[in-house]
Every structure is written in C-alpha cells, then in structure tokens.
Design a protein around this nucleic acid. Sequence first.
DNA 1: ATGAAAGCGCTAACAA
DNA 2: TTGTTAGCGCTTTCAT
Lengths: 326, 326
Amino acid sequence: MVSSNDVAKLAGVSQATVSRVLNNSEKVNAATTKKVNDAIQELNYRPNAAARSLISRKSGIIALMCGPLDDPENAEFSGKTIAYAREKGFITELHIQDPNEPAAVFESIGRSQAEGILAGPIMLVGAGVELLEKSGIPYAFCGMEYQGNGSFISMDNRAAGSMAADYIYSLNHRVVGWLGGNSDEPRLHDRYTGFLERMKQQEIEILSATDAISDWDPILSAMMARKDRPTAIVAATDAIGAYAIDFLIAYGYSIPEDISIVGIGNSKQAAMNYLGLTSVGLPGETDIFKAGVDQLIARINGDSIVPVPKGGLMPELFERKSAVAI
Amino acid sequence: MVSSNDVAKLAGVSQATVSRVLNNSEKVNAATTKKVNDAIQELNYRPNAAARSLISRKSGIIALMCGPLDDPENAEFSGKTIAYAREKGFITELHIQDPNEPAAVFESIGRSQAEGILAGPIMLVGAGVELLEKSGIPYAFCGMEYQGNGSFISMDNRAAGSMAADYIYSLNHRVVGWLGGNSDEPRLHDRYTGFLERMKQQEIEILSATDAISDWDPILSAMMARKDRPTAIVAATDAIGAYAIDFLIAYGYSIPEDISIVGIGNSKQAAMNYLGLTSVGLPGETDIFKAGVDQLIARINGDSIVPVPKGGLMPELFERKSAVAI
DNA sequence: ATGAAAGCGCTAACAA
DNA sequence: TTGTTAGCGCTTTCAT
C-alpha cells in the first residue's frame, strides 16, 4: 500500500506537507503543491480512511436500520434516506433486520464504525434499544414513535389505524379482518391499537392476525375459510395489503367486488393503477426521512436538538379502487 | 472516549492484556480475563474500529453499487446481497446511483473504506470503471456482463432480449414498442441488443425508446398516439413494464386485451397476481448475488479466482397474463 | 512555507 | 501468563 510517506519521498517534501496538500489547508507554495499532486498522481495514492478517522473520530458513515427491502415502503424509505444522507456528506451502511432473527441487527450495529445510527421501520425487540443506548453512538428513530432517549419523527400511526377503521365502518363493513401489527414494531403496533380502539367502539367483529410472520397464507386461508368471512381487510402496511390482494386473486376472489382491502402507509406501490390500493398515510411528498437524518446529524454534532412535531404527522385517506361500500 | 488504556488502568493490567482479552486470543489467566471484562463492562468500553482497521487493513465493509431502490428488482438484489454479505462477515455500504447524475457514485466510492466493491445493476458511465480500477480496491461485477478486470456473474441478458422478441413474434404482434435499454447500463443494453437483433430478422416495426430517463410518460404517450400504435410493448426491466401497465391503465387501456406487455428480469413483483407480468428471466430462486459476493470476497482475500459461468446463465420465459396472441 | 515530532487506539512481536 | 515496545497512516502542534 502506498502511503503519504511514499508520496513525500517522491515529491521531495515532508510527509506533513503532503497532508497539508491533501487537506488543502493552510498556505502551501503553489510549486510544492504541484510536486505533491504529481507524485500522488504517479503513485495513484489514496489516503487511508482508517488512519484519518482514527484521528478525526469521524468515519463519514451512518448506519441505517431497516426492515426487509422487499417491502416497497422500506425500499423507498431506505433509498431516500441514503440519498439525503449522501447530500449531507455521509455514506450509509444498510443494516437490514431479518424478521426471523430480529435481535441480530442490534448486535452487529454495535461493532459499526458509524458516527450515528438511524433506526427506521424495524422491530424493537429484546434488549435491542438497550444495546443501541449502550453503544454510545448517537441515534435517532425515524418513522415510529419510540419514547426513549433517541428522538423520533413519524406519522401518527395510531390515527392512521383509526382512520382506516372509520373508513371501513362508513362503508358498512361489519366483519373485518386485520393483518399485521406485531407488537415488537411500534409503528405497526400503534396502527393496530388505533384500529382496534375504534372498531371496538362500534362493536364490529374483528378477525385479527398480529403475529410477526412473513407468511400470510395460512392466516388469510383461515380468515376466508369461515362461514362469516370478512367483507373487508385492513392491513398494517401496504405491502401486506398488496400481498393479501395477490393471495385473494389466486383464490378466485375479485377485488373489491368480493372483498375490500385497505392498506396503511400510502406507499408508491399502493398508488399504482394496476394495484389501486386504498391506503391511509402521508402524502407521497412528505419527507419524514429528512427530519430523521437532520435529527441524527444534529445529535452527531452535539447541536442543540432540533424540535420534532409532537405526536406525529397527521395522515390522510387516499381512496383508490380496492375498497367499496356494501 | 474510553480506550483500552482506561480499561487497563481500571483492571490493573497492561493495555496489551486488554487487547488479548478482546481478541480472546492466546492464553490469558481466567482471573485476569474476568478483571478485564468487568472493567470493560463498567466503563462500557467499545473497541475503536478505526484503530483496528488501521492495523489489520480490514474494515469489514464492502461497498455495493446499485440502481434506485424504487425498482423492485434493485431492491430485491440489494436486500439479498446485504444479507448474504453479512453472513460472510461483511457490513455493506449501499451506494445508490442517481440516474440523473450517474457518475457521482463512482467518485464517492473512491473515498470508501470498503475492502471490496460490488458493482450491481448500474450504468457504467464516463470514467466510472476507470475510477474503480484506479481505486485499487478489489471489485467485481454482478448482474451484468462487463468484460474488464472485474469478474462478472450474470444472466445472459442478450438471450433474454431475444427470447422476449421471439415470444412476442410468436404471438403475432407486428408493431412492437421497446422501453429502456440505455447504452450506459450494459445489462439493459444487452437486452436491447438481443431484442433488436431478432426483431430485425423478422422485419418487425419497432418503436424504441432507449434513453436514460426516469419519466416514461412522454415516451408512452408518443407511442400510443400513433395511428399504427404498437400491439405489444417489451420493457427492458419488469419495473419499466409495470410502469407501462400503470400508465396504460390510466389512459383507459386494458391489459392484455388492448395491448400486450412483456418485461425482463422475472422479479418478484412481476409474479404478483394483481400484476401478472409475463417476463423473461431467471427463476426466482437463482442466487446471482451469491456468486457475486463470493467472487468479491475471493478477490479481497487474493484467492485464486473462482470461475464464473461463461456467457451468463440462460433465462426462461415466465408466461403470466399481461401478454396474449392477436 | 515547510519540517520534525507527537500521538490517535489498537495489534503483534519480543521480553520477562 | 503478562508487560514493554514498536508501529499502522495520518493530522496537528510546535519549531524553524
């Protein structure tokens, strides 16, 4: 490996001068600068990032924790977050949480050289948050309401659940299924809570499945096998909603003629005409990820904390074609 | 920041011993080990990753270059690659290429502390590959056939294009649109080449759009505005195909009654029943990403290069419901 | 404007 | 088994 020392020798200057040129700091003689740059060129020298961050205590890396990317909502969130972080000068390590082993992601993150950790849509499981805390690395939550030391910025997930419930009720559905809302994932749990609360008020019959599962087939089978099968299903995420539609079509149902489906999240996917998934969520242009990244960077820099909206952003209903009145 | 020196002092041992305990190498006295671990616990000490990698010349990080995650094919690829890399002991930095500024990703990657670079589905633009080469960091291509120093592992994209062409021809379509296939992205360019070659043989009228654009609306409008509008459209990726379907539905068309659509890639998305996109690609369980990661790790370790299948893996046709004969 | 030297936190000889 | 010491490649005083 070629070091700044090699460059210095070739350029006939001291190693410190090479460093100065690299950081184009201070006033270095133009002639010297040229000599050094020529040597850098010739040797194809690249500064060693590890040595730099050993001194500066800055790696230029943040870690993003996120659920599986086959959920378009997660993919969209990650993509936007990574792009925005890059704008802000950070490279992003992506740590994807395996739903079958949700604790693992918290462990690997401790070894990270990241300057900060952004906890996106993930399951908060076991000693996970404690590990985050103990890592000593600044962190922030984004997309869920976690009441800890990390800040958070989020949609009001509970309100979203309630709105889905109200909508389905207004469409005269009285036997309703619910999919998702695993209690380890605060975002989804809050959605379920809001939904349940409102439905209970109306004394609607609810068939809920809130387990942390990746395979919804048996759940959907069980729901649809009943004599009083649901006339509508509300899903904790659009991805689950889309999956339900996929499944139901395979089983011969027509959507929404045979059964109505409502998602939560208002992802891009939901808005596609071939899916047309009615969904409760924030308008597409809402930049939750920006607030998250800004918040995290503020924490990294030890700035006074940027205030976040209390209680989360209020979602809206986006009516498309997957749900109708009966 | 608490260092191994602080731990050593508290434990009443030398700093080297702390290091030994950390790497649970050599034989350290059980009693000493306990003292050290207690001190680590008490101070909540975490080893400094930068210092470690300064010595070991290993960061435990690989960089993955990939196209935008709102293409489900990219999201799927990234997710699987990251998971597999983690299995192999590597954390992944995700570098997403902005289609509007495709060169940027090659520059930022040079500064990376990554031990290796995996070039996934991206546009090879300008001096990009040269920069890769000059970075001195081992790299490998994955998902496209680039004939350089980096190895590659891929589907036979050219064959995929040809197969799509043959299929559409066998369905009696004689005015056919093509979407995508930007020449900067070898993967897509090869698909286009294969398609064009076969179509030209048949003297079919082709309306092609191969620009590097993110907005297909004007292209689709222009195609469908013609008096002899195409009866079928082949898309260079499933994501583009899905977008075309979305657009066409919005314009009042029924798929496949009014127009047939065929994608390439056979992504999970294509297989969803609500989309049902006929596509040419590898079976879903094909693990291209594994070969890519394995290849890269071999290069990192300087192992003798693992051989890759020549000419790429042969794709298959997955007939679903978006294309019919006329 | 430039060089010499200290040291970031750690690992890995080499001693003891 | 443990301590001492020498760097890894760089930034940053402090001299010159």
